[in-house]
């Protein structure tokens, strides 16, 4: 993969990555009540809300599976080919749900960020 490079970069002594000084250097690190601070707060809040909504949606589907199988006892006898339905639902059915929730989240989180960006650029 590195076949094209004639000379390797010089060897460098390994040291710890630089640690950032964060403690008490400036008088205040607080985000004020100015528009910029408000936009950041609302971005954080909307991303958190989005995460919680997605997590709750997944947990509801997850909990619904045993609930449905308890409420409808006949389902246990059902089968697709030689495999019981409950095995198919738990063993394969929940993975597409996880991926769907994840894809929805990635899309919406990026939209939240671009909305923040356009607000921050306007002000």
């Amino acid at each position: 993969m590195s076949g094209g490079t004639p000379t390797p970069p010089p060897r460098v002594r390994i040291t710890a990555p630089p640690r950032e000084e964060t403690a008490g250097r400036t008088a205040t690190g607080a985000i004020g009540t100015d528009p910029a601070g408000l936009y950041i707060r609302s971005l954080i809040r909307s991303q958190l809300r989005l995460g919680i909504v997605c997590a709750v949606a997944f947990v509801v589907v997850l909990v619904a599976v045993p609930v449905v199988f308890t409420l409808v006892p006949g389902l246990d006898a059902a089968a697709v080919g030689p495999v019981p339905v409950s095995w198919i639902v738990l063993g394969a059915g929940l993975f597409p749900v996880i991926i769907a929730v994840a894809a929805l989240y990635v899309h919406t989180a990026s939209r939240n960020e671009s909305r923040y960006r356009s607000l921050a650029d306007d002000s």
């Binding site: 997605c54 997590a55 997850l62 929940l94 996880i98 929730v101």
Partner: peptide
């Protein structure tokens, strides 16, 4: 049997939580 199926689901969904709250 079926009870063990929570393991693969949990191992995968853990990454969903990682995505939702931690990754970026």
């Amino acid at each position: 049997g079926e009870r063990a199926l929570w393991f693969p689901i949990g191992y995968t969904a853990g990454y969903l939580m990682l995505l939702l709250f931690v990754a970026a």
